[in-house]
Amino acid sequence: MKQHSFVQQHGPTWQRIEDSLAKPAQADNSKVLAEHYLLLCQHLAIAKERLYDAALVERLNNLVLALYRELYRYRSETRLNFYAFFKRDFPLAIYRHRYYVLLAFLVFVMPGLIAGAWTYFDEEAVYSILDAPEVRQVERMYDPDARKLGREREADTDIFMFGFYIKNNISVAFRCFAGGMLVGIGTLLVLFFNGLFIGSIAGHLTRLEYVDTFYPFVVGHGSFELTAIVFSGAAGLRLGFAIINPGQFSRLDSLRQAGRDVVPMLYGIVLMLVIAAFLEAFWSSSTSLSIEIKYAVGALLWVLVLLYSFSGRRYESR
């Protein structure tokens, strides 16, 4: 068949398909799409084989490309199965990255413990880690005397703090993950310094005996937040390690594989951090609840989070 009659015969069909693609996608026309796709693949193959005009081949090529993308939108994971994700995918991803989690945990916690102990025993130590204004601000925040004078925090302030925590804390976790691309060094630095700051603040406040204001505040949301930061560190380290030691893959393939592997962790981390921000703004800040209740709930949350996060092992063999 010559090109002219080919175009004459199929041109209207192509036009129709092009028009239908321009419209927003209908609900479930995947069957029609598949038919169009197969038809157009055949036309493209014919056009290429018979060396038809470059413009015609390009048009068909673009049409097949558009159909192909449309066709595969249906398998897209935007239809996330929440149940399977929470039950299996997220804990399993954590289990598979357990060594990275362990490393991230150590890098995060060890400086924290050391800095905590140091600031606890040495009055001046905190100033070599944090600026004086920062220290003063933290002290003011958790000063029990100030607390007693103040009333319950206003609701609108709670919402402000919710936004504030979402913006800052989740961004820290994301940067911690992204730092993995710098062969993991960025991740290690973020983990190390965050551990250091948190540890030194805790140590310092404990030394000042602000125990009853500080710990009840952090214990609740800390379960989600600290764990999520460790997980995002693990995800970042996975990327970094994939670059350092690609094994039998090329560096690029290894990196890409790592990128795909950590995706479930990223979803989980985002959700954990949103929950943490919610708790931090609306629960942790509440002063009307007794300290005992806060400790109890905090402990419960910790147990639940840890049990859940490390429940991935049994899915491994499947």
Binding site: I166, K167, I170, S171
Partner: peptide, 12 residues
Amino acid sequence: GLGGGFFLIFLF
């Protein structure tokens, strides 16, 4: 307060 909070969330 309220506005700032939502603003930060949107900013994020």
